[in-house]
Design a protein around this nucleic acid. Structure first.
Lengths: 247, 247
DNA sequence: CGGCTTCTTGATCAAGGTCAACCTTTGTGG
DNA sequence: CCACAAAGGTTGACCTTGATCAAGAAGCCG
């Protein structure tokens, strides 16, 4: 983890996006006081480790990361892929103690926030708290669906679902949507996120390709027939959400 | 849904439990203003329906319920079982629009809260909001683990996990823990919650019994060897949590 | 050019889904 | 209280999905 030059909150490009709640002057001033540093982490390096007691809170500024759980038998379940704007470490900062790990998928850069200070959020910043709760509930909605996908759909459908969800999250962030997007996940990540084995991920990808629905090539995702892919995977779209919180 | 006599918030027996955040006088007064009625719903009847636009918010007062998603192909994924003290309908009350359904598993009774009014929570009740966020994050932790269980464990382990989690939730609520507890789920509920078929639920229950770990008899769960069951299912205990919100 | 990790493919086999028949419990109306 | 219907549970046969293992092929560094 290497420190780099500060990005001032005031001109933060992430915040400009429609996805996020616009801040008042006062709110912006508060958020700016939280920020303590800006760091980078190379691909495949840990951002939060399971044992650690850091209390730090991060906003993912650029790059991809993932959150995972390690089961007693050693296997890994990826819980979520994190994209720019996502908060990292709210749970440990707030509840104390950490459950999960977060690892950089690509090289990432992070805003470091003073974790203990977010408690002050609750006194005098009702707008920010509303946005926080909305963000949490929105995430819960995504989690609900993901649970249903793991519980009820098979390999190819699971992959198709993740593809569309990820694509749409990128679009919400302002990716100028064509029919493709970056997709740095390796087979292993797909397997660990979707509860499949490596080889089965391959067979499933083959099927998606054979049906002319989508392919992954060269770290990019190509959606060949969005309509049919959505029907195939049972994907019904992200909810358009009202001002997420970004810190 | 039938209206019944009010239970006054002031003397609400649920609130006495250690599990929930104690209220100040002022907070209690605020919460009491939210309450509009007290109703009952018979077993297997809907509490919240997918299409509806009710804006009502409930606290489950007694009985069990479950939250589920209906997939495009008609199958049902149970997302969560709801126990007394759990909030029902926060997501629709706050985000508007509803994703999921909630159905009574046993006969239940519910506190009806004025959903639109919870927005006032954010102005002037920081203690309650902290408890709300803590509750949401705590639930997220449970969801994370459940996702890992669905993604990575097989039938018998999944069932064992759900048994222990449910048992411990009841204990947290003040059930005087012996080695058994009420367990009103039918095979179908287990199947739909855990992503299994009805017959496989049976085979898996047989295995748990044959190993001397646990049985379900007569709507009650009997934990025969907690130690070994936990090891078998990869269950590591609920987190002791700090004052959940109850409304 | 080794020595990595990742991807691909095929063979084998266990987990678990589907279907069907039958049985048991629960609930309902006479 | 009984008769019957409906819902839920049990069991077995059969077959699909997907895990596991292994061996080889690309890529991708240093």
């Amino acid at each position: 983890m290497r420190a780099t030059r500060h990005v001032p909150c005031k001109t933060c490009p992430l915040r400009q996006q429609r996805l996020f709640k616009p801040f008042s002057e006062q709110e912006l001033r508060f958020v700016a006081t939280l920020k303590t540093a800006h760091v980078t982490v190379p691909a495949n390096q840990p951002i939060l480790e399971l044992g650690a007691q850091s209390g730090a809170l991060y906003t993912l500024f650029s790059g991809w990361a993932f959150r995972y759980l390690r089961l007693p038998d050693g296997s890994r379940q990826i819980l979520d892929f994190l994209l720019p704007g996502d908060l990292i470490g709210l749970q440990p900062a707030f509840l104390g103690g950490i459950n999960y790990g977060v690892t950089a998928l690509t090289a990432v850069s992070l805003c470091v926030l003073h974790g203990a200070a977010i408690d002050a959020l609750f006194d005098g910043h009702p707008g920010l708290v509303r946005a926080l709760v909305a963000t949490l509930l929105e995430e819960k909605r995504r989690t609900d669906r993901r649970l249903a996908v793991l519980g009820r759909r098979q390999g190819p459908q699971r992959i198709g679902y993740l593809m569309l969800e990820t694509f749409d999250r990128l679009v919400q962030q302002g990716l100028d949507a064509g029919t493709e997007c970056p997709f740095p996940l390796r087979r292993r990540h797909l397997a660990d996120a979707l509860g499949l084995s490596g080889s089965h991920v391959n067979r499933s990808l083959d099927e998606l390709q054979a049906r002319g629905l989508a392919t992954i090539e060269d770290r990019r995702l190509l959606i060949r027939d969005r309509e049919r892919l959505a029907a195939f995977a049972g994907y019904t779209g992200l909810n358009e959400l009202m001002g997420r919180l970004i810190l």
